[in-house]
Write a protein that binds this DNA or RNA. Structure first.
Lengths: 192, 192
DNA sequence: TCGAACACGTGATCC
DNA sequence: TGGATCACGTGTTCG
């Protein structure tokens, strides 16, 4: 009933106010939610919810796909190399792609291998030991907008070195991995 | 006014029903939205919205990070390989060099590569970082009648290690390189 | 006029 | 008993 007194008038007023606040919070949340949805036209309550749902599903799906991609990308293939090709490209997916890129086949060294993980780069080089070899190599690496975090050189066999370098790309770095290897190799050939 | 007749009674009923439907649609949407949020306890209207907002932001952030990762990570892993006569590693008889390894197993690790030069052996391992990893590996290597001269482990990427070991065969060593890798891999799989 | 969307006050319910 | 939440019917506004 309209005029019923089931509640003391004072409490009734508090009730009204409380409800008002509650409504206010909800519509604020709804507004914040709407702000997160890209390309939202209808500000209509139910549209906001509907589009939020749709967008959320889409995000979850995409996130899952990206994560799967990344996970699969870490999977490395072969290590036992048997090809004698000069320039052996090894993709992650196809473990035996042996297209032949020719380089000058005189000197087998340096042998270069590179991998990336986010902004980090791992470089492995197999080359002849010669004077200033290591500092030259590191200097070459740093020319490529890479800052060397760690390096290690192991002598092995007759006058050869196995060098492992971990470096980090700076903001200017923009090469593909393949170009990195190619450029580095050309740089190193100058003093070898 | 309460009893006002601004509306015909029949239309008034339609109004009520329409509003009922509208409310129903909204609460359905809200329910669907709640269903998409993982680990949601309070089914309270505003909590659903609040958590949806939070979750959405989190997803957007993660998606952005993943996309950045993918963009910066070049698809391939490129490798220069030269055949060298002095390091006679390559396996020339079979056409697919990885047939003897269980590349089918879910975990690609450990990735093992080995080379020899006279009595010296170079072993490179790419594996996940886990407890006691390095000492276990070295212990496994020594089981194969190899004495470790030098070892180096570089963390790279997400919880993986690039390990390089130089060892020397003792008189009892008689394995082929291929068997060495195979045996070592099997040994390592026991604790990985 | 009609249909849709909204905010409001209110009674009920659940810790 | 409060304090918070909910669904409801209603008046109003907009296209």
């Amino acid at each position: 009933m309209v005029g019923s007194l089931t509640r003391a008038p004072l409490l009734a007023q508090e009730h009204v106010i409380a409800e008002r606040k509650r409504r206010e919070r909800i519509s604020q949340s709804l507004l914040s939610l709407a702000a997160l949805i890209p390309g939202l036209k209808k500000k209509d309550k139910n549209s906001v919810l509907g589009d939020a749902i749709e967008y959320l599903k889409q995000l979850q799906e995409r996130k899952a796909r990206l994560e799967e991609q990344i996970a699969n990308r870490t999977v490395e293939s072969v290590k036992f190399v048997k090809k004698t090709t000069q320039f052996y490209v090894q993709d992650d997916q196809t473990s035996s792609s042996d297209e032949n890129f020719d380089t000058q086949s005189k000197n087998p060294f340096p042998d270069i291998e590179a991998r990336v993980s986010n902004k980090d780069v791992l470089i492995r080089i197999h080359c002849e030991t010669n004077k200033g070899c290591i500092s030259n190599i590191i200097s070459e690496v740093e020319k490529l907008h890479l800052s060397v975090l760690n390096s290690n050189a192991l002598p092995f066999g007759q006058a050869t070195l196995y060098i492992t370098i971990v470096a980090q790309m700076d903001d200017e770095f923009s090469m593909t991995l393949r170009d990195l290897v190619k450029t580095l190799r050309e740089g190193l050939l100058n003093f070898m």
